[in-house]
């Protein structure tokens, strides 16, 4: 499966500036996530990623700049878009008193199409018990449930916010394998924010690096590595380690 060229990008930002209180989360962010790609937004672990995610999901309007999710404004078209988008937030947000089975049933009532069997199968692969309350699961299991729930309606776009934060290697691998499997089966577009460079290096085909809220590097990962002859970690260190703010935007297309 190859990325569809010429189709509307799965996610598009144009001059997006987000402020939360006095902090500027992102400033003048412009990027485009091609359909079917795995796009990694890299940056130091800091405040504001959840603000960005809220804007992408249409829970907060973009005051300055534009966001297009699957070609539409998420603030205005949130209900329609959420049927085609899956979300795995950094902090699992499901109601703690519900079990995984109840959550799947609940989500099934909220979506028009829901594959409860696939969700159960994913949870089995993750070895998550279906009848224990969500709040009593470990962090890794909660993340697994969130991921399984986010894929139950076969979304076209999957948004992940630091999916491997706080997970051990085994759990991390399980998450990525699940994502890859879905990617392979359905050509889902994946957009993830992360700071775990080593893990994402094999999967991502596009990266964008944020430094102090500004985009300092963006492009096809393969081309970037070929051009510089460096690994992703090395590229990141060279770019994000720059203190001067005049590390301008470098866009390299494949």
């Amino acid at each position: 499966m190859s990325a569809q060229t010429g189709a509307v990008p799965a996610l598009e930002m144009d001059g997006l500036t987000i402020r939360y209180g006095r902090t500027t989360v992102v400033e003048g962010l412009s990027l485009a996530v091609p359909r079917g790609s795995v796009y990694a937004l890299l940056g130091r672990n800091g405040a504001g990623k959840s603000s960005l995610l809220r804007v992408l999901l249409g829970q907060r309007p973009a005051a300055i700049g534009r966001v297009l999710l699957l070609g539409e404004d998420p603030w205005k078209r949130r209900t329609r878009l959420m049927a085609r988008v899956g979300v795995v937030p950094e902090e699992p947000d499901a109601p703690p008193e519900m079990t995984a089975a109840q959550l799947s049933a609940f989500c099934g009532r909220l979506h028009a199409r829901w594959d409860g069997g696939a969700v159960a199968e994913r949870l089995r692969r993750f070895e998550v018990p279906l009848d224990r309350p969500f709040g009593s699961l470990s962090k890794g299991q909660r993340g697994a449930v969130s991921l399984a729930l986010s894929l139950g309606h076969a979304p076209e776009l999957l948004l992940l916010d630091d999916p491997t934060l706080g997970l051990d290697v085994v759990a991390r691998d399980a998450v990525f394998q699940e994502v890859i499997g879905d990617l392979a089966d359905r050509g889902t577009t994946v957009f993830t924010t992360t700071h775990d460079l080593r893990a994402i290096e094999g999967i991502a085909d596009h990266v964008a690096i944020l430094h102090s809220g500004r985009l300092v590097l963006a492009g096809a990962l393969e081309a970037l590595k070929a051009e510089r002859g460096l690994s992703l970690e090395q590229i990141f260190a060279s770019v994000a380690g720059t203190r001067a703010s005049d590390a301008g935007i470098t866009e390299v297309r494949s």
Partner: peptide
């Protein structure tokens, strides 16, 4: 398969397919 190799190596299936 593309899927299995991608999962196993944790790489993008598109890459394997290519």
């Amino acid at each position: 398969s593309v899927r299995d190799l991608a999962r196993e190596q944790q790489i993008n299936p598109n890459t394997v397919a290519k």
